[in-house]
């Protein structure tokens, strides 16, 4: 048991250790101010919060719907919600092109009014939201499902409208799950690469987020690519810490 767990830890930790050991500290001064890194960091700091916000706004009602549905409808909805997790991100990018690309179902209509999502920061946000939506929906659904039915049924019996039940009862009772889901979604959006490069392209200052910058740097200057990798690890740690802090604050409130 313990031996296997140790292998698991080493499996995850060794690559990170290797990356940190390969960092070129003598070049760090030049590398941290490299425009490739700086611009991509700025892009990421717009794309990830924007995608997370979209995910929470449309994902929470979707989770509420899922939590109140059963049977075949629920299975169908679940498969739909899970599809971005199961599909390779590059396929998600192809799917997004077929819907929102300039020749896509909706994209061609958008194109006629002058809105082009591919190659724009809106496209990068859309791609990140698409792949991270399931993480939030599944976590929030768990939260909604764990609310005792009796409370909700009592409210319904009193004739409280469904929208108010969500706002006044379900939402406050599931904030922890919703926050956890949002954090998971943010973490996924931070690491998003395949759907973004396929759907939104590699546009400096618009769609070149840190993962795309790593890919670009790998062929120009591998030392820079490693540093961007470390920056991404740092951001991931921040996201994880934010979640832990959030949970602790709520626990002490109780």
């Amino acid at each position: 048991m313990k031996a296997l767990a140790t292998i698991g830890v080493a499996f995850l930790a060794l690559p990170i250790l290797g990356l940190v050991l390969q960092l070129r500290w003598d070049r760090i001064g030049d590398l941290v101010s490299d425009p490739l890194l700086v611009t991509a960091l700025r892009t990421t700091l717009v794309v990830v919060p924007a995608a997370t916000l979209i995910v929470i706004v449309i994902g929470t009602p979707l989770a509420w719907l899922l939590a109140r549905t059963d049977g075949a409808t629920r299975t169908l909805l679940r498969v739909l919600v899970l599809s971005p997790v199961v599909l390779p991100p590059v396929v998600s990018g192809v799917l997004l092109l077929s819907a929102f690309g300039r020749r896509g179902l909706l994209g061609s209509a958008l194109d006629t009014v002058g809105i082009v999502l591919p190659f724009s920061i809106a496209g990068a946000i859309l791609a990140a939201a698409f792949v991270s939506l399931p993480f939030h929906v599944l976590a929030a659904e768990e939260g909604f499902r764990s609310i005792p039915h009796s409370q909700l049924d009592a409210a319904r019996l009193l004739g409280v409208p469904e929208a108010r039940i969500l706002r006044d009862y379900a939402f406050p009772a599931a904030t922890r799950a919703i926050a956890a889901g949002g954090t998971l979604a943010a973490a996924r959006a931070l690491g998003e690469f395949g759907a973004t490069i396929t759907f939104a392209g590699n546009v400096e200052g618009a769609t070149r987020t840190l993962p795309l910058a790593t890919f670009t740097a790998l062929e120009r200057d591998p030392d820079l690519a490693r540093l961007i990798g470390v920056v991404l690890i740092g951001l991931a740690v921040l996201v994880a810490a934010a979640q832990r802090r959030g949970i602790r604050t709520r626990q002490t409130l109780r």
Binding site: F119, G201, N202, V203, E204, T207, F215, T216, E219
Partner: peptide, 14 residues
Amino acid sequence: IDSVESNVRQVRAR
């Protein structure tokens, strides 16, 4: 150039 691609076939596909 709006989007830079890492190989010529990606340019062609776009």
